[in-house]
Write a protein that binds this DNA or RNA. Structure first.
Length: 463
RNA sequence: GCAGCUGUAGCUCAGUUGGUUAGAGCGCCUGGUUGUGGACCAGGAGGUCGUCUGUUCAAGUCAGACCAGCUGUACCA
C-alpha cells in the first residue's frame, strides 16, 4: 500500500528560519571578515562561547521577570538542568567574565560573531535565527573607550563601502534622562514605559510619542494602545527635552572630546536614542543607514538600526561580583548583508565554473586530465557524469550558471581540437536569433581551438 | 499578545444568484532535436478548494468554530 499523501512529512522550513545560497553566504563571509579585521586593528581578540548556556545564567539578566524564559528556546538535559540557546552574545560574555574573572587580562577586549536564537514572532527581515557581531570592552570606565568603539564601528561601515552620508551614528546617554526624570518627579516604575515611548519617535513622530506619554494611541488597524498617563507638564518637559538637544552630562562631554579627532565621521547627538534594553547605564549609541531600503516586493521600508550598543556597568555584578565597568557594540550581520546586497556594495567572489561535457564514455580519462589542468589554473571545473545528450547537458550548465562548457566529442577527436562554448556570450547573441535552425547553425558563443591553447583561451574569456 | 485582512495547482490568480468531471498564465517534465542553451510547436504530471461541523436534493461558493498566512501594533534580552 502506498502511504496517503497526508501521512507524509511536509518538506517545510520552520517559520522564522531561512536557507542561504552560496552568493548570500559568500557576501556575508566577506562582511564578517571586514568587521573582524577592523576589530583586530583596535586590539580586540576573538572569543567563542557555545550556543547553549544554562537558562539560569542567561535568565538572571532577563529584565522581564514575568516570563523569565519567554522568547528563548529552552529544554532540559538528562539531569533535569534547563539549557537555553543564547539570545545574544552579551549575556554569555558576562557569564564568561564572571566565571573567569581572576584569569583574564583586564581590561578585556573581545569580539565574537555567531548565530543567536529568539523564539518569537518572525516578521519581515526579522528571523528566529540570526547572526550577531559583538565587540565589548570590560574593565574600562573611561568614556574614551565608548567613543573609540563608535569610531571603530564607523570605520567598519566605511570599509564595507558606505559613504559617510549613507549612514549615521547617533548617541545619547541614559544619565541625562535620569536627571530629567528626577526633575519632573517621575516615579521609577514609569521610567521604562516612558523610554519605550521616546524610542518610537522615528516611527511615530512627535505627536505619536505625545499620545503614548498621555492617554494612548490607535494603530492603523484601529487597535488601541494604552499610554503612560503622565501629567501634561511632565509630557511637555519631555517633548521639550527631545527637541532642544542641549542637555549634556560629564560622560557625554568626555565622549565628544574624543570624537573631536574624527570630524570626518558622521556622529550626531540625539537624546531620543535610548535603546529598549534595561541594562544600559550610561552612553548608548546606534548606527542607522540613511539610504532607502526596499523589501522583497520593492516597497520602501523603515529599516531601523543595523548596529547598536552602550555602557552596561552593572551587568556582570549580577553574578554576585562587584560592579565591573563594561561597554560594547553589537552589529546585526544579516540585516547588514541584506542592505549591502541591495546596494551592490560587495559582490560575490564566486569562481567561474567550467563544465566538461560528457559525450564519449571511453574518453573519461581525457576529460579528467583536462579538468585537472583547468583546476590547477584556479578555476572551478566539473565533468558532467550523466548520460544525457548535449542539449540536456547545456541546459544543466545554464541552470548551474556555468561560464564555459568544454566540448570534446567525435568531431573534435577526429580533428584533434577542443570546442569551448562561452555561455554568457551565447546568451547575448541569442537575442538576435529567432529561428531554431539558425540558432543551431551559428553555435552561439562557440569556438574551436587547438588543445594546447585551452588555458590561454579560457584566461582570455574569464579575465 | 491585541487588531484588521486573506486562505482554490510549485507561484500569481479566475471561478457568475449554491448546480455535472474546478480553470488560466507562469514554472516543471516529455517529445519535436539521441552534437548545441534561448524562442517556437505538441503533449504530460500536478488539487482532500486551509481544517472541522452545520444548512441544503446539491457547497470552492452560505453559516459557525478552529488553524495558518499577511499587515499594523505591543513585547523584544
Amino acid at each position: 500500500m502506498t502511504k496517503s499523501k497526508i501521512d507524509k512529512p511536509k518538506a517545510q522550513l520552520p517559520k522564522g528560519f531561512k536557507d542561504s545560497l552560496q552568493e548570500s553566504v559568500d557576501i556575508r563571509n566577506q562582511i564578517i571578515a571586514i568587521i573582524k579585521n577592523e576589530c583586530e586593528k583596535f586590539g580586540f581578540k576573538n572569543l567563542e562561547t557555545p550556543a547553549l548556556e544554562y537558562t539560569e545564567a542567561l535568565g538572571k539578566f532577563l529584565p522581564d521577570i514575568e516570563r523569565p524564559s519567554g522568547g528563548v528556546f529552552s529544554f532540559q538535559d538528562e539531569d533535569g538542568q534547563w539549557l537555553s540557546m543564547r539570545y545574544d552574545l552579551t549575556a554569555p560574555l558576562a557569564r564568561y567574565v564572571a566565571e573567569n574573572y581572576q584569569f583574564i587580562p583586564k581590561p578585556f577586549k573581545r569580539y565574537q560573531v555567531g548565530s543567536v536564537w529568539r523564539n518569537e514572532k518572525p516578521g519581515p527581515g526579522r528571523y528566529r535565527e540570526f547572526i550577531q557581531f559583538d565587540a565589548d570592552a570590560i574593565g574600562i570606565s573611561n568614556n574614551y573607550i565608548d567613543a573609540e568603539l563608535c569610531v571603530m564601528v564607523a570605520k567598519i561601515f566605511v570599509n564595507l563601502g558606505f559613504a559617510v552620508n549613507e549612514f549615521k551614528i547617533k548617541y545619547s546617554s541614559r544619565v541625562i534622562w535620569e536627571e530629567l526624570f528626577k526633575k519632573i518627579n517621575l516615579i521609577d516604575s514609569l521610567v521604562p514605559a516612558v523610554l519605550r515611548a521616546v524610542d518610537k519617535l522615528d516611527r511615530l513622530g512627535i505627536d505619536g510619542v505625545k499620545d503614548l506619554l498621555l492617554e494612548g494611541r490607535k494603530d492603523q488597524s484601529g487597535d488601541f494602545m494604552k499610554g503612560v498617563n503622565l501629567k501634561n507638564e511632565q509630557a511637555n518637559e519631555i517633548l521639550n527635552f527631545i527637541s532642544n538637544k542641549s542637555t549634556k552630562d560629564v560622560q557625554l562631554n568626555i565622549f565628544e572630546e574624543y570624537l573631536e579627532n574624527y570630524k570626518d565621521l558622521p556622529f550626531e547627538f540625539d537624546p531620543t536614542v535610548v535603546r529598549g534594553l534595561e541594562y544600559y547605564t550610561g552612553l548608548v549609541f546606534e548606527v542607522e543607514l540613511t539610504a532607502k531600503i526596499l523589501n522583497e516586493k520593492g516597497k520602501e521600508v523603515v529599516f531601523g538600526s543595523v548596529a547598536g550598543g552602550g555602557r552596561y556597568d552593572k551587568l556582570i555584578a549580577r553574578f554576585g561580583k562587584e560592579d565591573v565597568p563594561a561597554t560594547g557594540i553589537s552589529i546585526g550581520v544579516d540585516r547588514l548583508t541584506y542592505a549591502i546586497e541591495q546596494f551592490d556594495k560587495i559582490n560575490s567572489s564566486q569562481k567561474p565554473l567550467i563544465v566538461i561535457a560528457n559525450l564519449l564514455a571511453e574518453k573519461t580519462s581525457t576529460y579528467i586530465s583536462i579538468a585537472e589542468q583547468i583546476r590547477s589554473e584556479g578555476y572551478a571545473c566539473e565533468i558532467y557524469y550523466g548520460s544525457s545528450n548535449l542539449s540536456k547537458q547545456l541546459k544543466y550548465c545554464d541552470k548551474r550558471k556555468a561560464s564555459i562548457v568544454v566540448i570534446i566529442g567525435e568531431d573534435e577527436l577526429k580533428n584533434n581540437t577542443i570546442s569551448i562554448k562561452n555561455l554568457n556570450m551565447g546568451k547575448e547573441l541569442s537575442k538576435n536569433i529567432d529561428s531554431r535552425e539558425e540558432w543551431k547553425e551559428v553555435k552561439a558563443g562557440q569556438l574551436t581551438i587547438q588543445p594546447n591553447d585551452l588555458i590561454s583561451e579560457l584566461n582570455k574569456i574569464l579575465k
